[in-house]
Design a protein around this nucleic acid. Structure first.
Length: 737
DNA sequence: AGCACGCCGACT
DNA sequence: GTCGGCGTGCTC
């Protein structure tokens, strides 16, 4: 029984109870209400522990009035206020904005901010040892005297630290402790990392880079402004925005750099260290909990100056953030699909807008919506059209496979083979790019025409000859390659159709038996470590021909690589994805951009059946603007909503079978002639939210149909699955800011 | 009867 | 997101 009720019971006067809204990690629309104990002091943003049902959770006191509709007798009290800076007002606003935008619960967005529970408690002390003044061991040995020298001044050491510094094993320390020479001591938390030094000289910038850097630096400390750095591979975008980071540091502000993949962090940290003398703090899912907690605290109290991280770093409680950079802004890894679905690139711009600092998006192949935003004047575009090294961009040529293709059963056109030969003769490296793992994407029976499908998802099974398996690239199902057809039982009748990287390797080995060939794809046994090792080999020139999937499109630099051959430039262009053209353009531009990056004179060769396709044409002309213009026009012609509006909407849920069933019904009943759902402007999302349904479907359609009405009817007639609704809106939020 | 599992609603 | 309650269906 709480003190307050006792007061009431005694019939005494008492202060009115203070009730505050508290955001809890529950998928509900708003905050819950809690009582504040008389001796407790909270304000909006205070991070608190509260009872919730049978358990205790971490939440935050929120803005606004507490919910009055709830029975006051049911209100529980806040248990504890954490001794950590309250969530600042701008971050609270941001959390509410993201929740509203993603149609998610604000409490779930808050959860992303409070992801490190450990961070809320003060850092635990480390156990170690200290010299007890005046004590001596019974017998002095060389090892012991080394230790004694170090501890004599009374400083506390961790056991491994002391053993390492003295060059002895830790059993020496244990021995001294047993003898009462050393005593157990608690060490203060690990000292903070030294600050990055913005005054170090850094790499010499070209005039162009310097101009760009100045533009960014001028914006530091002057409120929100969004930039799009559109710079070709090798143009030195990183060096340019490093100057902006330096400027923010000089301005006594923090900086956050988002990168799309954890795999690229190490390289990035090295480059950062070269410029700033120390490594920045790292933030992603693989950072161990202790270090995570330390970084979280450091970010919150302002001790950590620069963070480099994955998309989740966007929700760190920065003390004074002054710059946000989104590197490789077009990368789809910025999209989170589960829980709160968001695109970190867009939410970065929103965060800058709300908190009032500049945001820099950088890419060699910007997303179409960022190009449009630049065109509309929302972003200031900075173009870096040439490489910082002075090396020329590769010349890109097409090979028309309809007339200049290879003989049947081969995959490399004679023109490409000649170029490979020439490149090898000159002692340079070749990259053959094919975004398809395995040996062959389809296996069929020559006799009865049977095709191997996946049992679960009906996709074709991809043959992996090296493993001797047929694998489904959708769900991971695999089976051994049978020796006879399962349909007609005839032996030796199965044929592989089409190429994967393994099959290209077979061709290459036949054509260039002397060459050192390496196949790089994500299914390489040995995982990421192995891939990194192999990449190093390529870097140092120990490989002549690399055959790779999209894995080779980014990351390591290959100084000797002068020829990039794209085995199937049309691949991915006709897969029904509304972003197929954009993705293909980005991928091929990135991968051909690897040719001659350091020394210039690189060449790219695209094998294609569609030389007139806008993507291919733009790549061949070397003018990306051509692609963007064509893509924007074609989307408009296709009746897709204008940019900044809803382009696709995904309602997602856990129940797969239900999802599929519903998508089918929806497709059949759709009022659109193509059997697709309609996506009008963003309000369609709102119509959906009013239902309480759970399934996943992708909806794209002309705007002429009444989607809202249709979906509302359809949803009310459909059987009622349980759970909440999640909506991913693949829209550019700039239009709503 | 006893319990494993999945579904569903409540949580201030 | 997480928990407890409860119904279904299977086993000792």
């Amino acid at each position: 029984m709480s003190q307050q009720t006792e007061f009431f019971g005694n019939g005494q006067m008492c202060e009115p109870e203070v009730i505050v809204p508290v955001l809890v990690p529950v998928a509900v629309a708003g905050a819950y209400s809690y009582k504040v104990p008389a001796d407790m002091d909270v304000r909006p943003g205070s991070i608190v522990r509260v009872p919730l049902g049978p358990r205790e959770v971490i939440g935050a006191v929120w803005d606004g009035e507490p919910d009055t509709k709830v029975n006051p007798k049911r209100l529980k009290s806040i248990l504890h206020v954490y001794d950590t800076p309250p969530i600042a007002e701008d971050l609270r606003k941001y959390i509410d904005w993201v929740a509203a935008w993603t149609l998610g619960a604000p409490g779930m967005v808050l959860r992303m901010v409070l992801r490190s529970e450990e961070a809320l408690e003060p850092e635990a002390l480390l156990s170690g040892v200290r010299y007890i003044d005046g004590m001596q061991p019974d017998r002095m040995t060389p090892a012991r005297s080394k230790v004694m020298e170090l501890v004599e001044n009374g400083m506390a050491w961790t056991r491994p630290g002391l053993a390492g510094a003295a060059g002895v094993s830790s059993s020496v320390i244990d021995g001294l402790k047993k003898q009462g020479v050393l005593e157990e001591a608690m060490l203060p938390a690990t000292p903070p990392l030294p600050d990055p030094d913005p005054t170090l000289p850094g790499r010499k910038l070209t005039d162009l880079q310097e101009g760009a850097a100045n533009q960014l630096c001028e914006a530091i400390g002057k409120g929100f402004k969004a930039f799009l750095i559109d710079g070709v591979t090798g143009s030195g975008k990183t060096e340019v925005y490093f100057e902006a980071v330096a400027e923010a540091l000089k301005n006594n502000e923090q900086a956050l750099v988002l990168i799309p993949e954890i795999a690229l962090t190490n390289q990035f940290l090295d480059r950062f260290e070269q410029r700033f003398g120390v490594r920045p703090a790292e933030w992603h899912s693989q950072v161990p909990p202790k270090r995570r907690a330390r970084t979280w605290r450091g970010v919150a109290n302002g001790e950590v100056k620069v963070v480099v991280g994955a998309r989740s770093a966007l929700f760190l409680p920065f003390h004074r953030l002054g710059l946000l950079v989104v590197d490789e802004e077009h990368d789809t890894a910025y999209k989170q699909d589960d829980r709160v679905p968001y695109n970190a690139r867009d939410m970065a711009v929103v965060r800058g807008h709300i908190s009032g600092f500049p945001v820099v998006l950088a890419s060699a192949t910007p997303s179409v919506e960022s190009q449009v935003n630049a065109k509309l004047g929302r972003y200031t575009k900075i173009v870096l059209p040439v490489r910082a090294s002075g090396a020329e961009m590769p010349t890109i040529k097409g090979i028309d496979m309809r007339c200049d293709g290879p003989e049947r059963g081969k995959w490399l056109a004679p023109a490409l083979v000649n170029e490979i030969q020439e490149t090898l003769t000159n002692g340079n490296q070749v990259l053959l790019f094919l975004n398809r793992r395995g040996y062959a994407p389809l296996t069929l029976c020559r006799t009865c025409g049977h095709r191997f499908h996946c049992e679960n998802c009906s996709a074709w099974l991809v043959e992996h000859r090296f493993k001797g398996k047929l694998v489904c690239h959708h769900c991971g199902y695999s089976q051994p390659v049978p020796d006879k057809c399962p349909e007609c039982s005839k032996p030796d009748t199965l044929v592989a159709c089409g190429p994967g990287v393994e099959r290209i390797a077979e061709d290459v080995s036949a054509l260039f038996p002397e060459a050192r060939v390496l196949v790089l794809s994500s299914d390489l046994p040995g995982g990421t470590e192995r891939i990194n090792r192999e990449m190093k080999l390529v870097e140092t020139g120990e490989v002549d021909i690399v055959i790779g999937t999209q894995l080779v499109a980014k990351g390591h630099n290959f100084p000797l690589m002068t020829l990039v051959g794209v085995v199937d430039a049309d691949l991915g262009l006709a897969n029904g994805d509304p972003r197929a053209a954009e993705r293909t353009f980005q991928l091929l531009a990135q991968v051909t951009g690897r040719a001659g990056r350091i020394h210039g004179k690189g060449r790219g060769l695209l094998q294609t059946y569609n030389p007139d396709q806008p993507v291919i044409k733009a790549l061949l002309s070397g003018n990306p603007e051509e692609f963007y213009a064509a893509e924007i026009e074609s989307r408009e012609n296709a009746g897709l909503p204008p940019f900044g509006r809803l382009a696709a909407l995904i309602v997602s849920g856990a129940d797969r079978s239900l999802t599929e069933k519903f998508s089918k019904t929806l497709a059949v009943n759709s009022p659109s002639s193509e059997g697709v759902q309609i996506l009008g402007p963003a309000e369609a999302a709102m119509a959906l939210v009013r239902g309480r349904y759970r399934f996943r479907l992708l909806a794209i359609a002309p705007r002429s149909v009444d989607l809202q009405g249709f979906l509302r009817n359809w949803l009310s007639a459909a059987p009622k699955p349980t759970g909440g609704i999640r909506v991913q809106v693949d829209v550019d939020p700039q239009s709503f800011m």
